[in-house]
């Protein structure tokens, strides 16, 4: 019954509506076969992909596109590895061109990453805002990878981002949601007068409970990759992530009880046959 409660619980970002609130990356799997199975088990409908040079020497090598049913998934091309706005815009346009060739509906959006630093993979907020403005002007729906800084989040929305995606913790770190309060403030600012504005936690998920914690905060979705791809058993973890997302979403919709300092008894005092202390 609980799962049924969520059958119509779709996530709309820009002009795309996704049946699952989980967006899953396609990187770092031991094989493309394993990746394909994990994507299926995760229940996702939207997968991120990267744009890279064709391997001209090893043209017989495996191609990602041979392992993805592009009629089944909406692809979300990223600009991972770009360290300035101009490069991110170039890569976004190349991604769009590839997706147009594949006739995939994801051709009109991009996951924008403009990184500042190789060690932390933290985004450059100034360059991200600049790239967002230019990509929006070029017709893209821009999903922005960001820090969890509420002010930067607000600036990205003002720049025209279709979604702001604060990181729970650094990319691939598995540290989970380090600052839930910042994520809460991001949501408050981004959803003020615009409750359907999508906020996605992107990066840092290490295990299923991290997805649940994010969803319990009320974010609209979670984007993850390494948490599944590098788990000891990625197939099991893909299942776990799907359940965790449902659990967190249901708990958010259900509304948690407030935290109290002291206990409150669950069994009635009335009718008790023994004497209670004062």
């Amino acid at each position: 019954m609980s799962i049924d409660l969520l059958t119509d619980d779709s996530l709309t970002i820009g002009n795309h509506t996704l049946r699952s609130r989980l967006i899953v990356g396609t990187g770092k799997y031991a094989s493309y076969e394993l990746m394909g199975e994990c994507l299926e088990r995760s229940g996702t409908e939207c997968i991120t992909v990267a744009v890279r040079r064709e391997r001209l020497i090893d043209a017989a090598g495996n191609n990602l596109l041979d392992f993805i049913d592009t009629s089944r998934y909406i692809l979300l091309p990223n600009t991972a590895g770009c360290f300035n706005a101009a490069d991110a815009i170039r890569v976004a346009r190349l991604g769009r061109e590839i997706l147009l060739g594949l006739e995939n509906p994801g051709a009109d959006w991009v996951k924008l990453e403009v990184l500042a630093d190789k060690k932390t993979l933290l985004p450059d907020p100034v360059a991200t805002i600049e790239a967002t403005e230019q990509l929006v002007a070029d017709g893209f729906q821009v999903l922005c990878y960001s820090t969890d800084d509420p002010i930067v989040a607000r600036r990205l929305k003002e720049a025209g981002a279709a979604s702001v995606m604060p990181a729970g913790s650094p990319i691939g770190s598995g540290q989970g949601i380090l600052n839930p309060n910042n994520i809460r403030i991001c949501m408050e600012y981004l959803k003020e007068g615009d409750p359907d504005y999508p906020v996605i936690v992107d990066a840092g998920v290490g295990t299923a409970s991290d997805v649940t914690i994010a969803m319990e905060l009320g974010v609209d979705g979670v984007l993850l990759n390494t948490g599944i791809a590098h788990a000891k058993d990625p197939l099991r973890m893909a299942d776990a992530m799907r359940h965790a997302l449902h659990a967190g979403r249901l708990a958010y919709l259900a509304g948690r009880i407030p935290k109290r300092l002291y206990a409150t008894a669950s069994s009635p005092e009335e009718g008790l046959i023994v004497a209670s202390p004062e």
Partner: peptide
């Protein structure tokens, strides 16, 4: 020239 395609990524 840059000739690019899609690869796995997050």
């Amino acid at each position: 020239l840059e000739v690019v395609t899609l690869v796995g990524g997050g």
